[in-house]
Design a binder for these strands. Structure first.
Lengths: 119, 119
DNA sequence: ATTTCACTTCGTTATATAACGAAATATATA
DNA sequence: TATATATTTCGTTATATAACGAAGTGAAAT
């Protein structure tokens, strides 16, 4: 199997996981750090970190260091036109269900200081 | 995890396999039976049959019985608008590589009687 | 300097998927 | 009716992926 055809599947593999779709939808509402996403998805930190690295490697999201936090956000200028296309029409590809709607509601309330630290 | 978010991933899971992408590309050139696809992909018949059932279940392709053969073809009227969208812009999503180009060349030459039967 | 905190990486385990050959099914031919 | 052919289904095995906790990394606070 040549390299290019696998490269073609990479985009779709990235979109094949429910939690990654949820993350994409969440980040379209608001930039978030790892612990905020972890809190909403209710997964281990390491699991979320892995999902984020996959989304980043494929080009869907970018990261920005902010002190001890790492903020993840939708990639504003993807080099792959397919990624741009998916991102600008995400609601077409991923229809909202109750879970995604409740994710959005949680994002409004989520507070980095409360969720992530013990101050 | 609710049912709908998994339904959302189903489309992408189907597109996540190199051999299924090759099959889709092939069927856009020409309707083919299982043994013709098997010959080109160089896989076991049962494996190809399984890939075809996944593509059919997701709505990308349809089948048509023709005596002892089963012809598979691109679904001309998918009920899911996302499937229609992918199918009508397949070259945008899946760029041709050498493997896909050579698949197309093989399709021109492939002959059901020669490939599939021992007459 | 040391500790704390947010995150990543590593190693392991459980589950999902792809592949195969054998058996079952369905259709056509002898 | 019996046999051959095309395909599907089943059972198994190998590989890929997702999840976890523990260990490691780097920045901020003490």
């Amino acid at each position: 199997m040549t390299a290019l055809i696998k490269e073609n599947t990479k985009l779709f593999k990235t979109l094949s996981d429910p939690n990654r779709l949820r993350i994409l939808k969440m980040l379209q509402t608001k930039s978030l750090c790892v612990c905020e996403i972890t809190d909403i998805l209710n997964l281990a930190t390491s699991t979320v970190s892995k999902h984020l690295s996959i989304l980043r490697d494929t080009g869907f999201i970018i990261e920005e260091k902010d002190g001890k936090w790492v903020n993840y956000m939708i990639n504003p200028r993807p080099s792959d036109k397919r990624i741009s296309s998916i991102l600008s029409t995400l609601d077409f590809w991923i229809s909202d269900d109750n879970l995604i709607i409740s994710d959005k509601q949680k994002i409004q309330k989520v507070d980095r200081i409360t969720v992530c630290s013990k101050f």
